[in-house]
Write a protein that binds this DNA or RNA. Structure first.
Length: 342
DNA sequence: AATTTCCCCAACCGCGAAGTT
DNA sequence: TAACTTCGCGGTTGGGGAAAT
């Protein structure tokens, strides 16, 4: 069937709204409410199409809109929800009172997405980028089997890996041949790091919680199952690259892993978390927690009530990135200069 | 100081779903 | 049930300010 135009565009104004227009729209809606967006602009005396009025109201003029920077709490929630819901901005917005889908979408695209990319996380799947993982795997194995190295392996994966990364790997291997301890030290650090990490994951989501979420998010996005299974690899492999990034520096920040919900944090379902100085214990370190996502049902948006430890809202972008780095623990080594590949 | 480039975000567009006639 | 209308969503654009050169 044909699609009807949203309005007669002849003579209708487009572009930024003026204060006068805003006042007219607010005044009309306060007196009459909103409902029929098609007739609203005419009744309100606006030379705009209904769609434009609706957008202006829902994204900007609505009295319950919260403006200003996103808090860490909100950012954490967005990342969690996006990992499950994908680009369902309206669904995500329903769990963030006062934020609009447009605002969240913009924030994702301009801040969070870029940050995840810098950290080597695929912002679509929320898993480590496969090409980087493959590179990491090749470099690690080459240290223990130098005779089998490794150009052949690089060539073997060339169809899957960014060609520029192959070049990078090649140059790193050259460095390794000149200084045999260069990467080996990092791998040994990595093993230590892994051992620490395995012992420090917080409590896991209970099966019934996961079931609730799955029911709530039907139909399940295609990437959810993949995400859950991939997260197993993520836990172990992310540690690996992180150690390379530290380039021999201690990895003590694992001991103070922030109470981030990728590892289960929200208190709606959880017992009070261990203090930052205590050691997390887990029977199974490979599971992902959806707990905090479940804290506010879509049908009844309510303020989030996470007890996560946050830096105050005035912190800088760098601080946020540093915080996120600790959360996700998957930074690309500086020595890789990977920004150009992102 | 002038120009260029980058970045952010409000607003627009097209589409599909749901509702109505 | 087909035709039409309305609504809402997600992707994209472009104006303007900030930062870099």
């Amino acid at each position: 069937m044909g699609r009807a135009p949203c309005c007669d565009k002849n003579g209708l104004k487009k572009g930024p709204w003026t204060t006068e227009e805003d006042e007219k729209l607010i005044d009309y809606i306060q007196k009459n409410g909103y409902g029929n967006w098609r007739t609203l602009p005419k009744n309100a005396g606006l030379q705009r199409c209904g769609k434009s009025c609706r957008l202006r109201w829902t994204n900007y003029l609505r009295p319950d809109i919260k403006r200003g920077r996103f808090s860490f709490e909100e950012e954490e929630t967005i990342i969690q929800l996006h990992s499950i819901l994908g680009n369902k901005w309206s669904a995500i917005a329903a769990r963030l009172p006062g934020r609009t889908d447009n605002e969240i979408k913009n924030y994702w695209n301009t801040h969070i997405r870029k940050r995840l990319l810098r950290m080597g996380i695929d912002p679509v799947t929320h898993t480590p980028r496969l090409d980087l993982l493959e590179l990491s795997s090749i470099l690690s194995s080459s240290l223990y089997n130098p005779s089998q190295m490794s150009i052949s392996r690089l060539l073997g994966v060339q169809s899957q890996v960014n060609p520029e990364l192959l070049k990078l790997a090649n140059s790193l291997l050259s460095s390794q041949s000149e200084n045999p301890n260069f990467l080996l030290q990092n791998v040994q650090e990595n093993e230590l790091c892994s051992a620490q990490f395995q012992n420090q994951l917080p409590p896991l989501i209970q099966p019934n919680q996961l079931e609730t979420l799955i029911q709530e998010t039907q139909p399940m996005p295609a990437n959810v199952e993949q995400f859950s299974s991939n997260f197993t690899d993520f836990n172990s492999q992310s540690c690996q690259l992180n150690t390379l990034q530290n380039n021999g520096m201690p990895t003590e920040d694992f001991a103070t892993l922030p109470n981030y919900s990728y590892y289960a944090s929200d208190q709606s379902f959880m017992d009070p978390p261990p203090s930052e100085n205590s050691t997390f214990q887990s029977n199974n370190s490979n599971n992902f927690s959806f707990a905090s996502v479940l804290s506010t049902p879509a049908s009844s948006p309510a303020p989030l009530n996470s007890n996560s430890t946050y830096i105050n809202g005035s912190s800088t972008e760098d601080e946020r990135e540093s915080y996120c780095s600790s959360m996700l623990k998957f930074e690309i080594p500086d020595i890789f200069y990977v920004n150009e590949f992102m």
